[in-house]
Simulated assay, not measured.
Amino acid sequence: MASYRIYYVGAGGRLRLDRDMDCAGDREAVEKLLDRRADGRAGELWNGGRLVGRFSKLGLFTPAVGS
């Protein structure tokens, strides 16, 4: 299992930690992220110091380059 973090874009465009979660890999982390996301906020998904990707206010996920 790998540790992932979801960050949302908060006031002034700053990222704010929303939650930590353990997943078997990127695919599972993205699925969990999109299943739980229904509040219309944009943000990022991280695995340690590696950006996995970004998600828009509309819930569209864009993988990071090289992910």
Rank of each mutant, 00 (worst) to 15 (best):
M1C: 09
A2C: 12
I6D: 04
Y7T: 01
Y8N: 13
G10K: 10
A11G: 12
A11Q: 14
G13S: 03
L15R: 10
L15F: 12
L17H: 08
L17A: 07
D18F: 11
D18I: 05
D20N: 15
M21I: 05
M21C: 09
A24W: 09
A24N: 08
G25W: 09
G25D: 14
D26T: 03
D26Q: 05
D26R: 09
V30S: 00
E31I: 11
E31P: 09
L33P: 00
L33Y: 00
L34E: 01
L34W: 13
R36V: 15
A38M: 08
G40K: 05
R41H: 03
R41L: 07
R41A: 04
R41C: 03
R41M: 08
R41S: 06
A42V: 02
A42R: 11
G43F: 07
G43P: 10
E44Y: 03
E44F: 05
W46C: 02
W46Q: 03
W46N: 02
G48N: 04
G49P: 15
L51G: 07
L51D: 06
V52F: 02
V52C: 02
G53L: 12
G53V: 07
R54C: 12
K57E: 13
K57P: 01
L58G: 11
G59Q: 00
T62A: 10
A64W: 10
